[in-house]
Simulated scan of single mutants.
Amino acid sequence: MLVAAAVCPCPPLLVPEVAAGAAPELDTARTAASDALAVAAAARADLLVVVGPAGDTAPGPYPAGSAGTFRGFGVPVDVALPGPKAPTAGPAAGPALPVSLAVAAWLLDRVGWAGPAPTALAVADGLATEACLEAGRELAAAAPRVALLVMGDGSACRTLKAPGYLDERAAGFDAAAAGALAAADPSALAALDPALARELSAAGRAPWQVLAGAGQGAGLAGRLLYDEAPYGVGYLVGTWS
């Protein structure tokens, strides 16, 4: 049963070494993410699952200890999910974490996560809503007390300088997602339009709908800790508990 969730954005710029001189611009988002993880930790879950968009990486599960890196962004920063370290070379080495899950691993390390060693699930950006909901229901049934760390960004079309340029629909899409997260409303999250999310480059849609499936019937309360669009991309931090 789902007992808590932390919802965080997943831009590599959350990692100060990647952001370099612009790092202070996301200090408030980093603090909010740490606060959200504190709520998840306080739930004393038996299982923590990190859910994030797969991006260019093949979707699928990742065990505790799986490693990722930000070397592709020009910085020598390597991370791993808490738990037994995965092999780093040779035929037994597992696939590297996609960027969204690598950011999650960095956040967990930043707060000194001391709860259960997390596993992770990368979901395809185009995964259908019902498949997302079913995945969430399966995660919620995996242990008596389940917590999720849900990684995902809102639209990338909030301003003229945004990665996806300005789209007048972007603010409304992000507001609907923010309202659903703040209210811990699985039905409202499930109602987000996958086609519109794709047009707005909103990579959080599928992970948020996995959360919607996990939260069905859980009766949790929501709180929104951060709702901004630096660089023209919607970043949301929230908690369900």
Rank of each mutant, 00 (worst) to 15 (best):
L139G: 06
E134H: 13
G136D: 05
D174Y: 03
G126Y: 00
R169Y: 11
A180S: 11
A184H: 01
D167V: 02
A171V: 12
A122H: 00
A122T: 01
K161P: 05
G152P: 06
A162S: 15
G126N: 12
A184L: 04
L133A: 13
D125I: 01
D174I: 08
P194G: 10
R158K: 13
L133C: 10
D185Y: 02
L148E: 00
A191H: 02
V146Q: 07
A135D: 14
G154T: 07
G152H: 02
A178W: 10
D125S: 13
A177C: 10
L192D: 04
A156F: 07
A128S: 14
G164T: 09
A147L: 03
A171S: 11
A176G: 13
A182Y: 06
C157H: 09
A131H: 07
A156S: 15
P116E: 12
A156D: 08
A140S: 13
L148W: 04
A182F: 01
A177I: 02
S187E: 15
P118V: 04
P186Y: 08
E130Y: 06
T129N: 10
L166D: 00
A178G: 14
E168C: 05
A182V: 07
D167Q: 11
R169W: 10
A143C: 09
A188G: 06
R145Q: 08
P163T: 03
A180G: 14
G179V: 06
D174R: 07
K161D: 15
A162W: 12
E138F: 00
A171G: 09
A162I: 12
A140H: 02
G154V: 07
A191W: 04
G126K: 09
L160V: 15
T129Q: 13
P186W: 07
A140N: 09
M151Q: 13
L149E: 01
P144W: 03
R137F: 11
P118W: 00
